[in-house]
Design a protein around this nucleic acid. Sequence first.
DNA 1: ATCGAGTGACTTTTT
DNA 2: GTCACTCGAT
Length: 778
Amino acid sequence: MDSKLEVYIEGLNDAQRAPTLHKDGALIVIAGAGSGKTRVLTMRIAYLMSQGVDAFNILSLTFTNKAAREMKKRIAGIVGNNEAKNLWMGTFHSIFAKILRIEADKLGYPSNFTIYDTQDSQRLISAIIKEMQLDKDIYKYKQVQNRISSFKNSLITVRAYANNPELVEADAMAKRPRMGEIYAEYVDRCFKAGAMDFDDLLLRTNELLNRFPEVLNKYQNRFKYILVDEYQDTNHSQYLIVKALSDKFQNICVVGDDSQSIYAFRGANINNILNFQKDYENVAMYRLEQNYRSSKNIVEAANSVIEKNKTRLDKTVWTANEDGGQIIVHRSPTDGEEGRYVASSIFENRMNHQLNNGDFAILYRTNAQSRAMEDALRKRDIPYRIYGGLSFYQRKEIKDVLGYLRVLVNPKDEEALKRVVNYPARGIGGTTLDKLTVAAKHYGRSIFEVMDKIEQLGPSMNINRGTQTKLKNFVTMIKSFQILNEESDAFTVAETVARKTGLLQELKKDGTPEGIARIENIEELLNGMRDFVEEQKELADATGSLAEFLEDVALATTLDNDTGDDDRVALMTIHLAKGLEFPFVYIVGMEEDLFPSGMSMSTRSELEEERRLFYVALTRAEKQAYLTYTESRYRWGKLVDAEPSRFIEEIDDKYLDYQTPMESYRYKPLIDADIFGDVDKSKLRLKKPVSGTPPKVGTPTQDQLRKLRKIRPAAGDSATPSLAGSLEPGTVVEHIRFGKGIVAGIEGKGQDQKAEINFENGGLKKLLLRFAKLKIVE
DNA sequence: ATCGAGTGACTTTTT
DNA sequence: GTCACTCGAT
């Protein structure tokens, strides 16, 4: 083994080293927050390569392209750049887009197919709904798009849908009987446009691997070792791809944390990780439980939160780090005040602890919350960067330039064509476009082809001479770009496009500060393309082509764009923050209806996902976490009352520092303060604790570890002996975390029986007896 | 065909 | 408060 690698591997702890050195077979690594899973993945790949595995035979799937790049860089540092550069590493979407381009012809796609982003998909669906003359209030394009997306993620094709009475019925019940037709038309239109949407990149990969055994065989042989990060967030489609590719060698390593599964809303299936052991033979399971990131207070507070979830693999994250400060809870009258508080707190902390702006992050549940924070930071002259929301590539002026580039690469790309055909205005309006669309459908050709043949087809389409000329000019312009693209690099083409189409002039004419900013944005895009071209020249399997650039753009995340070279406070949604860490973290908008989101409170599993999201948020913090909430906040342009989030209450008080008294906002106890009634209060003042202080979560005893290693019974499983019946008000019980307490009331029966217990450590809690680890003391 | 003002729905989270 | 879409005036 390389001595450099040896030193690195020496540096791992035992739990990390075991999966790193586990060469062949299937393994799953359950990695708690901050437990160094990226290190394990990186070292494992380096180790495989040191054992003679060719980089070409390793496939590593990550959650963001940025993560892939960073890992690749670290591996290059160990095994050398020449070796590392042959690794296949990236997101599911980008890796399989690459494969699909190679194999496109088998599926009847051009290899330069376009990737439709969500907006493209939604526009197309809107157009289809309109063409079918359906009521747009019933067929809401966003809902329809969502539904189609979930079909695709579950591998329900148009035909499978039609053959599934349950689904058809469900849509009929929802007053959308023609969903299937829309779905069929949408798929057909994408196909004819030579376009794939995000879900297609996975769905078509499945199709490819299923329909063409020789292709499957080829990639099975190629990817002898497969590694998947963030496995808890894979959807069914991704699961099947991994399963198919790893089937032959079964050298599959998945890493994840069920407690951090936060993408169920887009089809992620937590069962993928929960059932991994059933999917492969002789699965080795490893756990990383030591957290190196956060203070003990934060780790334990986060544990106390996630413990409330029923569906999870048991593990105990602990840390040897210092206690650290308590989590600070702060209430503000309005969202504006909240912003001001956060800004001045950042300012003070930065001074007092001599920190950089980059040491701070503000996390929120919804993008809309960023505004108040931005305003406050700007007033304080604190530099910040917003991640997510409208990304650079989604800005109008950028999409316009990209639209032209897309059309010239793939003239069948209908959405791009519709976008640019009349911008800047050149007299080709909606009416003409409608006629062209009808004709295109009639002849089974793309709109661009019809435009190209307008002289022959024009008369029968009722398009006048003037318009015909305009169309002809447009086609000629695009064709000239295509020729240029044959002989020049992507940057040159884009620059020419920006000038020749009149896009830049249009903005110059505008003259407003906004217009100037847009010109600057286009310049930034061009600079980016120049860099791209330079970069690609150095890479082995890249061509620096325009098509490649467009693919990168389509699949880029806002995080991917971060150069990270300037010192700014980070603002982002909690979803985006997954995998990141910051010394100081402010979680803002800790309010009912916002976090947990009002749309995710109706079912237990939704609420549990919100709780996992909160867990993710908390565990981003290294040194200090803040939770802020408001009494009222602007939503939908209106001031509405707010109530503190239940998640604050779920954290044990001993981890919290209420800067603002919570009293008046605390949930009213369901039972009066004198719940003890005629019970002897002295019972609560515990006579000497039986076995010292209750064991802490942070440092599990061997006995606890043994117990925790078992997967918890699923809901409905009654394997645990129930205490039902043996409890009554007044019974004194002991809980592993909350210590001693006294039963205040019992409600429900059977499976759902709950007890309300007043604990010395935790206050009033309602526990499901089926799951509560209670011991009757007396 | 084009542009502006006005209207209405809407926000969960993203590759 | 914001985006996307509609309608009426040019």
